[in-house]
Design a protein around this nucleic acid. Structure first.
Lengths: 162, 162
DNA sequence: TGAATACTTGAGTAAAATACTCGGAATTGG
DNA sequence: CCAATTCCGAGTATTTTACTCAAGTATTCA
């Protein structure tokens, strides 16, 4: 599992989508201006998100993207995996002949570590992020209107997960 | 916190160092041949590891690198941080004016996430890795000699940590 | 002392990933 | 039809990764 800014862009975009999903399809142009991400880059990211069945597209005027399922059904891990893809974790395909026929020292270690982080990010959904307070406040400022306060405290603080 | 193959290289090298630290200083040339990492690349990585006081160098013939402290005092997080360095986590330095003076949507989220993963990797030390069974078996095969079996079961399985 | 060893530093480079641009096609609501 | 929007492919600049080469410095052994 690779963890770079690319994944962050994808999560940002998906979170924006989650925050506006009740207003019909969200166009990439909107996300682009709201989040300051290039439109064409978003197109690339969403091509992958679509391919991984995390979003569905609505073409034509008034179209855009919708989340495929509920916000509570999409985890951060899924989003990151969708755009990061090729995990060349160990430079050896299949069985570990990384170095002269031998398994490289950290082969299993890194697999374990990746699995742990993956599991961690799998436990956090878009719904969890939407529920966070500071996100809510950011949303207020970004939309310039008050959020419908349905904080029914399914709220999960990140610091409580690990 | 960025997680790429670069960090994996660094951890691999440090683990090799930890496995051979009782045989005097370890030269980068040795690590290079054992782990199949380019010598010059190792030089770059160890320049940083030295700068971060994780290793110390011994010059002259028979010289090489030593761990600065005990294997149980060096965490994976420290190693990854040392070589990854510049965490441009949010494209905004200092205060979050990522996008038109506003904090970008996932600014705090990503900081939190990074902190969690960082904390996770901080809990794993080189000593923990050395204690792992499969690592031991790899070591046996690589050294072609039996390891002094001082498995005094301070052994911590990665899967037990999270 | 002197030569070998090995770290140290810096410049440079090829390949990959990242982030983005551009042009155009397909689709669809009004 | 027309405009909005997704789709698609080619192309590009920047950064990171991974590595090479070359020169210099410190240390130790003989």
């Amino acid at each position: 599992m690779r963890l770079t800014t690319k994944g962050r862009y994808a999560v940002t975009a998906m979170l924006d989508l989650a925050l506006h999903c009740d207003e019909g399809p969200v166009s990439l142009a909107d996300i682009s201006t709201r989040q300051g991400i290039s439109l064409s880059y978003l197109e690339q990211l969403f091509a992958r998100l679509r391919h991984f069945k995390l979003v569905k597209s609505v073409r034509g005027p008034g179209g855009g993207y919708r989340l495929m399922g509920d916000t509570s059904a999409i985890s951060i891990a899924q989003v990151v995996d969708a755009v990061s893809e090729s995990l060349d974790a160990t430079r050896c395909e299949g069985k570990g002949n990384c170095h002269e026929g031998e398994v490289c020292l950290t082969h299993h270690l890194w697999e374990d570590l990746s699995a742990q982080i993956h599991r961690f990010l799998s436990g956090i959904t878009l719904a969890d992020l939407v529920a966070r307070n500071d996100i809510q406040s950011v949303r207020k400022r970004q939309d310039l209107r008050v959020v419908s306060a349905h904080n029914n405290d399914t709220h999960i603080a990140l610091s409580e997960i690990l």
